[in-house]
Simulated assay, not measured.
Amino acid sequence: MTKKMKFLAFSLILFVSLVLAACGDDSSNSEDGKIKIIAAHNQTDQENPYQAGLLEFKEVAEAESDGKIEVEVHAGTIGTEESELVEKLKLGAADVVLVSPGFMTSTGIKEVDLFALPYLFESYDHWETVVDGEVGQKMAELINEKSNNDFKLVGYWSAGVRHYYGSKPLNSMDDLKGMTIRTQTSGIVADYWKQAGAVPTDVAWGELYQALQQDVVKSAENAYPYFVQQNHHTTNNGKFITETGHDYTTRFLLVNGKKFDSLTEEQQNAILAAAEASVEAEREAVYKQEEEYKQKAIDEGAEVNEIDRTPFIELAKPLQDQAAKDIGAEELLKQIRETE
């Protein structure tokens, strides 16, 4: 574990102790002292890194609590859309979920959109240094405070580095003109693709394979472990992959704040230990699968090419500046750019 990860973990534990002091020892435990935790992500493939992360969460939480915590892991079975999972977490129908920054903005915490900006991070090392350091700590505090205790951020996961894949390779930005692309259809991400010349189109993740197969969209963007597991690369509108590397993705591991606060200190510490372990397991799975699934795509007929990213990065910078100003995150953006 890096020093920065230890620092974030220490900060979270300190936050928990303050909550306990304020709220006392209210507990939602059953009569036998056991509790069930519903943990969910939106991916249906059992080989997905999300599943590896939540299974590690389950193992550590149950072990650290001496069996007094039971974790039930759901891989897309209680929602394949992140908006569903956020709503279930808020209502108490789920206790631990994994979501992207884009879906968190709908809760009114606009600062989280910072992590969704295209070309914000230069590498995995840059990303880890940021989220495991002071910026990550500040974002966790913002989420905890602004959600009125509905959400507590207990870890930063990755969903890989996202690339374009579509009906033709990209040799320059001009090749995107008029191209329908499955991506976010509002916000900074949509604005970026529009300015690049593409046409953002809304398609549910679970329906994207069929949409690519039936020409509903001509392209999409995601990381190798995700779109290759869904066989998008086997469609005519997914076989050409251009490594745009436009997003070293951030995912938030969130717990239901109110239920968390009702647990005993021992149970809370077990949850935090499980969250910390899940971060390491999920990231390790992502980094390993990046190369494995790239090779799988090539072996199964996909074509991969690289592109000069400079024009794409230059297009992103003024959008980053404006977005950071709009959401009140200019200082955080400056910190990220200055972090090495």
Rank of each mutant, 00 (worst) to 15 (best):
T105V: 12
S100K: 12
A94K: 04
M104A: 09
G108Q: 04
A140C: 09
L120G: 04
D125S: 15
T107R: 08
Q137N: 14
G178P: 11
E128K: 12
F103W: 15
L89A: 11
Y119F: 13
K168C: 01
S167Y: 02
V130A: 04
L153D: 11
S123F: 03
D150T: 07
N149I: 00
I181S: 06
D174K: 13
R182M: 13
E145T: 14
P118Y: 01
T105H: 02
L170P: 02
S167H: 06
I181Q: 11
S147N: 03
T183C: 14
I143C: 04
L85R: 10
W157A: 12
N148K: 15
I188Q: 07
T180Q: 03
Q137V: 04
D175I: 01
L89Y: 03
M139N: 05
M139Q: 14
T129Y: 00
N144K: 09
S106D: 15
G102A: 14
V154G: 13
L89R: 05
L85W: 09
N148P: 09
K152M: 15
P169L: 08
S186A: 13
A116V: 02
S172I: 00
E128P: 00
G187L: 03
E84W: 02
V86C: 14
G178R: 03
V161W: 04
M104F: 09
I109D: 09
I143W: 08
V154N: 07
K90M: 06
G155I: 05
G92P: 11
V130Y: 06
E141Y: 12
I143A: 05
V189N: 01
Q137E: 15
V96W: 01
D95N: 15
L114C: 08
D125G: 14
M173N: 05
V130S: 05
L170Y: 10
F115K: 06
D150L: 09
I188S: 09
F151V: 01
K138P: 05
E145G: 03
N148M: 06
E134P: 05
N149C: 01
A140F: 08
S167E: 12
K90A: 14
V131M: 13
S186C: 01
G133L: 07
S167C: 06
E141F: 05
I143P: 09
T129H: 13
N171R: 12
G155W: 08
V112R: 09
P118K: 02
I109F: 00
L114K: 08
I143Q: 07
T185C: 11
H126A: 11
S172R: 04
D174N: 10
S172D: 10
L176S: 03
V130K: 03
S100P: 03
K110N: 14
Y119L: 04
Y124T: 10
W157V: 04
W157M: 09
K138C: 01
L153M: 11
Y164M: 02
G92C: 05
V161G: 09
T180W: 07
K138M: 08
G133T: 03
N149F: 11
F115A: 12
T105G: 00
A93P: 01
D150M: 00
V131R: 14
M139S: 03
M139C: 10
P118R: 02
L153T: 05
